[in-house]
Design a protein around this nucleic acid. Structure first.
Length: 436
RNA sequence: CGGGGCGUGGCGCAGCCUGGUCAGCGCGCGUGUUUUGGGUACACGAGGCCGCCGGUUCGAAUCCGGCCGCCCCGACCA
């Protein structure tokens, strides 16, 4: 992308409404713009991040054997009347009427709809287990949206639903999703910790929330350093082995971990001093097991091995995709701006032409751009060097390819790593080799 | 939903209390000169129904009423 003709409106000053770091930086770096309270437009650079985050989530869901589908944002009220939640959900649900006065709603979650889809077609226990997910916009009419994209009313969520024939199966699905989540967050460079949670309005009796660590997180967290030593990768656990899943679940649930509201100082103090970790965290995911709550309420049963009907055991698993973008910034930033982990950066690198109009610089910058487009942002604006440096730091590209008259004369480019600030003078080829 | 606050060019703000040469400042934007490796300097210029509706008044950004929108703290949540 050429910055001179892109809608990436960076801001020198911070809009007053933005109070937390990620919100300020998202506005300043030109990633999003607010359209109404808790509702945001994702501008080109922001959308690239959102899509990268979604893609990592998608790949890890697929790797855990989940199937992707896409359910609509608008749902008929009937489905929710069947489960009883049309009345229960309250004002957070955005209710609509179509031209025929039919009651509709903008989905805040999809348990009813997925159950309906399953009961239409699945008749036998032999088709189970299955896990389905989609990545779709949700709307929850929060009383008080805040923190920018972290607590919006409209948000992008990955929600998965598991169907098993019995409790043991449901437990395995639940654990499989948990492991998938740990891998997902790790791929983004985040440290995540699963914590015992209340199951809230979704209902059920087993629930964990996933907190990622960030210095500016919303709540204090206390945990055992053992979490940092677990190898969640395929070499640590086979995600399709029930024995491995059980071992994984055991590790992840026995070590101490709590947010401030559930923190038990006495238990924490009993931990060996060297293992006690305190930090701040942000909730980015939540998993629930709720048994037959929806299948029973909505009359969904399959034939069991003995031919008699059985209501499948279900669970649901959410990751706040758009929230993650904000959470990532909370976890990775400094005074100058965002520091994107490579895996989610909107652009791998920025090319800074320090002297637009200079033939040698133009040639070198264009050459680099031709080789790296479209995964790179070319700052070809007629701006001073300082402006370009400041904007590149703000936007947080992992690498900066700095093309100036000094180096261009010698066929050299300066490569800067945003995270460490390290710079090195290199030939074009070795610079390219480094950032690919 | 309870409490607090704010709406004035794209952004950040002053002006309001004490109505009238009050529509202003900084940044940004355009043109020119200047500068040329960390948000350069100067000059000229464009840009605003002062959130909306109504009222008071000879006169309203300023006073009064209603409405709308947004933010912050708290209770609640992916």
């Amino acid at each position: 992308m050429r910055l001179s003709h892109s809608l990436v409106p960076t801001l020198k000053e911070t809009p007053t409404e933005a109070q937390i770091v990620s919100h300020r930086l998202m506005l300043r770096a030109g990633l999003v713009r607010q359209t109404a309270a808790g509702i945001y437009a994702w501008l080109p650079a922001g959308l690239r991040v959102l899509q990268k985050v979604a893609q990592i989530v998608r790949e890890e869901q697929d790797a855990a054997g989940a199937q992707e589908l896409l359910m609509p944002t608008i749902q008929p009220a009937e489905l929710w009347r069947e489960s009883g939640r049309y009345e229960d959900y309250g004002k957070e649900m955005l209710r609509l009427k179509d031209r025929h006065e039919r009651d509709l709603l903008y989905g805040p979650t999809n348990e009813e709809m997925i159950t309906d889809l399953f009961r239409q077609s699945v008749r036998s226990y032999r088709a189970l287990p299955q896990i389905l997910y989609h990545i779709q916009w949700k709307f929850r009419d929060e009383v008080r949206p805040r923190f920018g994209v972290m607590r919006g009313r409209e948000f992008l969520m990955k929600d998965a639903y598991s169907f098993d024939i019995d409790y043991a199966g449901a437990v395995a699905s639940y654990r499989r999703m948990m492991l998938s989540y740990m891998r997902t967050f790790r791929r983004m460079g985040l440290k995540a910790i699963p914590m015992q949670a209340e199951s809230g309005p979704i209902g059920g009796n087993m629930s964990h929330e996933f907190i990622i660590l960030a210095p500016t997180g919303e709540s204090a967290v206390y945990y055992d350093a053992a979490f940092e030593e677990i190898d969640y990768s395929a070499s640590g656990f086979d995600i399709f082995s029930e024995a491995d899943l059980e071992r994984f679940f055991g590790l992840v649930t026995t070590h101490y971990a709590a947010t401030d509201e559930k923190h038990n100082p006495a238990v924490f103090a009993a931990l060996e001093a060297g293992r006690r970790r305190e930090g701040r965290g942000i909730e980015v995911g939540h998993v629930f097991y709720f048994g037959t709550k929806y299948s029973a309420a909505m009359g969904f049963a399959v034939a069991g091995p003995d031919g008699r009907p059985v209501a499948p055991e279900m669970g649901s698993y959410g990751i706040g995709v758009s929230r993650l973008v904000g959470a990532l910034i909370e976890a990775f930033h400094d005074e100058a701006g965002i520091i994107w982990p490579d895996a989610v950066a909107p652009f791998r690198a920025a090319i800074l032409n320090l002297k637009a109009g200079d033939p040698a610089c133009e040639r070198m910058a264009e050459d680099l751009y031709a080789k790296l487009a479209p995964s790179v942002l070319y700052d070809d604006r007629e701006e001073r060097a300082g402006v370009k440096f400041a904007d590149a730091d703000l936007m947080g590209h992992p690498w900066q390819l700095i093309v100036g008259p000094r180096g261009a004369a010698r066929g050299q480019v300066e490569l800067k790593r945003r995270a460490s600030g390290e710079r090195q003078e290199l030939s074009l080829d070795s610079a390219l080799a480094q950032i690919v």
